[in-house]
């Protein structure tokens, strides 16, 4: 008899990535997030720092990578407040910003902030969000919060 599919959990409808060594070569990224550290990969050969993290360096093709911490403080480049159209499981309003951390920039989610405090140039720091099942995702809040 075929095994039953557990419809309560279907990976094709779960936006949160698999984070364990069994499924993800870059599991260290998530392990570091558990320790409140935002990290990415640095090539041990050519020293290129990439975002997102890589298992092979896109510059020199080395597969010997080390993990480096991003600066503790970053800043908002631009920000948007989403009031409708969020995916199932996400509560509006959602706040997203293009963030600058050293030489790296990426889209980050901001939490626990007053909307009136948001502006380009404001400083932010990591604030990890833990999911219902223990998996983690990066989020950010204004420094001083």
């Amino acid at each position: 008899m075929a095994e039953r599919l557990i419809w309560d959990y279907v990976y094709a409808y779960d936006p949160v990535p698999q984070q364990t060594p069994e499924f993800n070569k870059l599991h260290k990224y998530y392990e570091n997030l558990h320790l409140e550290r935002l990290t990415t990969t640095k090539c041990t050969k050519c020293e290129k720092i990439s975002w997102p993290p890589r298992s092979v360096c896109p510059e020199c093709m080395s597969d010997e990578m080390s993990w480096v911490d991003l600066p503790e403080e970053g800043s908002i480049i631009v920000v948007t407040v989403q009031e409708s159209g969020a995916f199932p499981g996400f509560q509006a309003p959602l706040i997203f910003a293009m963030l600058q951390f050293g030489d790296i920039r990426f889209i980050g989610k901001l939490i626990d902030v007053e909307l009136s405090q948001l502006a380009p140039g404001k400083k932010v720091r990591l604030k990890v969000e833990t999911q219902y099942d223990g998996r983690v995702l990066p989020a950010f809040t204004l420094t001083g919060n």
Partner: peptide, 27 residues
């Protein structure tokens, strides 16, 4: 359908956070 649209952004590093096309273009 909304979930399906999420497959079109970087699911691991953007989509997982709830980032959608409207958010990207709003930025």
């Amino acid at each position: 359908t909304y979930m399906n649209m999420l497959a079109g952004v970087d699911r691991e590093y953007e989509g997982a956070l709830g980032v959608t096309a409207p958010v990207q273009f709003a930025l």
